[in-house]
Design a protein around this nucleic acid. Structure first.
Length: 611
RNA sequence: CAGGGCGUAGCUCAGCUUGGUAGAGCGUGUGGUUUGGGACCACAAGGUCGCAGGUUCGAAUCCUGUCGCCCUGACCA
C-alpha cells in the first residue's frame, strides 16, 4: 500500500459529504426477487434498488449503483493518476476501417456491435480502444523523448456477448477503465516492464481500497494478444473462473494458464489385458462410456482432434486422460503456432471417427502431430476404436499403436519428432506445484475484475506506429494495456459481501457511509434533530442517507439491511429525549448500541477507521 | 449458436390438462386503528393474458408463426 494515492480512511477529510433524503431520491426496494435473477449480486442489486434491467445484458444504474460506481471510478482515477497515467476520453463510435489493419473486425467477430449510418458507413460500438488510441498515437507520438506515456479512460463499452448473464457480472453494455501505455524499450525507467509493474501495484491499491478480497494471478493473454498478463480476481465461491495456487510458493494462475510441476511417465509394463472392442452407441459424455466399459473417466484416454492454423494445416492429436481437459494454449505453445478445434466435417473426411478417436490415428492419418500428456503416457487404457459407436478396452501404448519408439520412451520425443510427451492439459487441484517441490496446487474460484497485458508491438506493427530513436533509427512502439471492469467490480463486491438479508457494502465504495433510520420522522422536532446530526456528519466527510419515510420501523430496518450502507444510526423520539442515538455497523450481528448524542460523531469516525 | 424453461396487474405467481364474462398475495391510493424487525380493518384504482395469424358460436386456454426474457455450454472487464 505504500504507493497508494491516499492511505487515509475512505472518508474524505478535506471536503464535506452529502446529505440525501430517501423520499427525495429513487430507491425502489422490493420484497420479492425478480424471477429472472439467480445470482446473489443480481438478486440483491435489483431488490435493493441499485439496478433495473432494460434488456438482456442492459441495465439502468439507479442512484445507489451510480453513486457506488462513481466512488469506484474515483479510486481508479486517483491511483491511475498517482501511477503517472493521464485520463482522456475516446469516442464510443469507432469507424470499422480502424479494425481492418489489426484484423480484429474478423478476430473479434460477433462480439462487435456494428451499425450503419445514413451514408452506409459502418461503425462499431467500441468494445475496447487499442485501435483508436494506436491511431491517435500514429499522429501524436513523434519522438522517443515522449516515452513512457500512459493514457486511460473510464467509459461505457459494448460487447455483443453470446450470453449475457448474472446481472452486472456479464453485460453487453458495461463500464470499463481501459489504459494504454507506450514505450520504446522493455527495460529501464521508460520501459514497458516498469509501467506494467506500476500498473500491477496500482491495481493492487485500487482493489485493496475498494475493500475487496482478491488475488492477482498469471493469465492467458487471450484475443487481445501479447505476452505477459495478470488477472485480478475477486475471491468468491460463485466466481466463473478457476484459480490454481500453490500455498508454499505463492504461485497463482488462472486454470487457462496454470503450469503443472514435473510428472513422471513410463511405457514399461505389460498390457493389463487383451484388446477388446465394445459397442457403445448413443452415450454422450465420457462418464457414461466409462461406466458401460466398467471403468472410470480416469481409466480412459481422450484424443482431441485439432489442427494448426497455417496455410497448410496439420492435424494435431492431443491425448489426455479421460478426466482431464486439453488446454488449447499449452497445445499452441507445444506446437509453436496457433491451433484450433478441427472442424468436424473435415476431420471426418480425413478418417477421424469424431467421438471415437484413439491416439493410434496419429500414425494412420498422414502428417499428424501427436501430443501426449504425461498422465496419459504409458499403461493400459480404454479408448475409442476409431470406428463410430465403438470403444476398446485393454488398449496398450506399445502393443496397440505404432507411435512408441525407443527414443520416445527415453526422451519423450519420437525419432521423427511427430510424437511428443508434453504437458497439454488444464491443471487441477492436487497436481504438483510448478514452483515448490513436494507441494500440490489448490483450487479456488474468482471473478475477474482487472486484467493487465504486455501487448508488445502487435498493434503498433499492424498500424504502423513507430518513432525515431536517439540514433535516428525507426523503431516499433511497444505497448501495454490495462483494464478494469468498473461495473463488474461493483457486482463482484456484492457477490463477495452479502448475507441472507442483503448487501454489506465496504465503506470505500458504499453509496453512502451512514444511513440514519428515523423512527417516527413526523414526531415533534425529530427531523430538526436529524438535520443537525446529518450536518455534523457530512461536514466531517460522511455521505449521509436519511430514511425519512413515514414507514413503520420493520420495513425500514429490512430496507437498511438490503441496501447495505456500512454505518447505521437510529434516531427515535425515545432516544432523542434521553440524549442518545443508536449505532450499528451493517456487518454487526447483534442489536444496535446506545451512544450519547455528543459521542456519535467520534463513534462513526472510529468505525470508519476500522472498517 | 445448440439444449432446456418462461412470457397473465408495478412485483411474485395461480388459472391452461378438459375452451364459456380475468384471479390471489405483495405493492399503490383514500379513511381509520396502529408504531422498534416487512401491522390490521374498510373501500378503491390497476391487465386488449408478449405480438400476429388460424381453428371455433366462443381462445389466457388448442394450432402455426414471431418477438422477448432466463438457465446450461464455448468467450471475456
Amino acid at each position: 500500500m505504500s504507493n497508494a494515492a491516499t492511505t487515509t480512511s475512505p472518508i474524505s477529510t478535506s471536503s464535506s459529504g452529502c446529505v440525501h433524503r430517501w423520499t427525495q431520491t429513487l430507491i425502489p426496494t422490493t420484497r420479492d426477487a425478480p424471477s429472472d435473477a439467480e445470482t446473489p449480486s443480481h438478486i440483491f442489486m435489483v431488490r435493493a434498488g441499485y439496478i433495473r434491467s432494460v434488456g438482456s445484458g442492459i441495465y439502468t444504474y439507479l442512484p445507489l449503483a451510480w453513486r457506488a460506481l462513481r466512488k469506484i471510478s474515483e479510486i481508479v482515477r486517483e491511483e491511475m493518476d498517482a501511477a503517472g497515467a493521464s485520463e482522456l476520453l475516446m469516442p464510443t463510435l469507432e469507424p470499422i476501417e480502424l479494425y481492418k489493419d489489426t484484423k480484429r473486425d474478423v478476430d473479434y467477430g460477433d462480439l462487435l456491435f456494428k451499425l450503419e449510418d445514413r451514408h452506409g458507413r459502418i461503425a462499431a460500438l467500441g468494445p475496447t480502444h487499442e485501435e483508436v488510441i494506436t491511431d491517435l498515437m500514429c499522429s501524436s507520438l513523434t519522438s522517443y523523448k515522449q516515452f513512457p506515456l500512459n493514457l486511460y479512460q473510464i467509459q461505457t463499452k459494448f460487447r455483443d456477448e453470446f450470453r449475457p448473464r448474472a446481472g452486472l457480472l456479464r453485460c453487453r453494455e458495461f463500464i470499463m477503465k481501459d489504459a494504454y501505455s507506450f514505450h520504446l524499450e522493455l527495460e529501464g525507467d521508460a520501459g514497458l516492464n516498469d509501467t506494467y509493474d506500476k500498473m500491477y501495484q496500482a491495481y493492487t491499491n485500487i482493489f485493496t481500497r475498494c475493500g475487496l478480497d482478491f488475488s492477482a494471478v498469471e493469465a492467458e493473454a487471450g484475443p487481445i494478444g501479447g505476452s505477459a498478463s495478470h488477472e485480478f480476481m475477486v475471491n468468491c465461491v460463485s466466481g466463473e473462473d478457476t484459480i490454481l495456487y500453490c500455498p508454499s510458493s505463492g504461485y497463482a494462475a488462472n486454470v487457462e494458464k496454470a503450469e503443472i510441476g514435473e510428472r513422471s511417465w513410463s511405457f514399461d509394463g505389460a498390457p493389463g489385458s487383451d484388446l477388446t472392442k465394445h459397442h457403445t452407441p448413443k452415450m454422450p459424455g465420457i462418464e457414461l462410456v466409462a461406466e458401460h466399459l466398467g471403468t472410470t473417466a480416469s481409466g480412459m484416454l481422450k484424443t482431441i482432434v485439432m489442427r494448426t492454423v497455417e496455410d497448410t494445416p496439420r492435424w494435431v492429436l492431443a491425448v489426455v486422460r479421460g478426466d482431464h481437459d486439453v488446454n488449447e494454449g499449452k497445445v499452441r505453445d507445444a506446437v509453436g503456432c496457433a491451433v484450433e478445434m478441427a472442424p468436424e466435417g473435415e476431420a471426418r473426411k480425413a478418417g477421424f471417427a469424431i467421438g471415437y478417436v484413439s491416439p493410434r490415428m496419429g500414425y494412420v492419418a498422414e502428417n499428424s502431430l501427436v501430443l501426449i500428456d504425461p498422465d496419459a503416457a504409458g499403461g493400459t487404457w480404454a479408448t475409442g476404436a476409431d470406428e463410430n459407436d465403438y470403444h476398446v478396452t485393454g488398449w496398450h501404448w506399445s502393443r496397440d499403436s505404432e507411435l512408441v519408439d525407443s527414443r520416445l520412451e527415453e526422451t519423450g520425443v519420437s525419432e521423427d519428432g511427430l510424437v511428443r510427451i508434453v504437458s497439454i492439459r488444464n491443471a487441477v487441484a492436487g497436481d504438483p506445484s510448478p514452483r515448490a517441490e513436494g507441494s500440490v496446487l489448490e483450487e479456488r474460484r474468482g471473478i475477474e475484475v482487472g486484467h493487465i497485458f504486455k501487448l508488445g508491438s502487435k498493434y503498433s506493427d499492424a498500424m504502423g506506429l513507430s518513432v525515431l530513436d536517439r540514433d535516428q533509427k525507426k523503431r516499433s512502439v511497444i505497448m501495454g494495456c490495462y483494464g478494469i471492469g468498473v461495473s463488474r467490480t461493483l457486482a463482484a463486491c456484492v457477490e463477495m459481501a452479502h448475507d441472507e438479508n442483503g448487501i454489506v457494502m465496504p465503506l470505500a465504495i458504499a453509496p453512502y457511509h451512514v444511513q440514519i433510520v428515523v423512527i417516527k420522522p413526523e414526531g415533534d422536532g425529530v427531523m430538526d434533530h436529524v438535520d443537525a446530526l446529518s450536518k455534523e456528519l457530512s461536514s466531517n466527510g460522511f455521505d449521509v442517507l436519511v430514511d425519512d419515510r413515514s414507514e413503520r420501523p420493520g420495513p425500514k430496518f429490512k430496507d437498511a439491511d438490503l441496501i447495505g450502507i456500512p454505518l447505521r444510526i437510529i434516531v427515535s423520539p425515545k432516544t432523542i429525549e434521553a440524549g442518545e442515538v443508536e449505532f450499528k455497523r451493517r456487518s454487526d450481528e447483534g442489536k444496535a448500541v446506545l451512544v450519547s448524542r455528543g459521542e456519535i460523531l467520534n463513534t462513526c469516525l472510529d468505525a470508519a477507521k476500522s472498517l
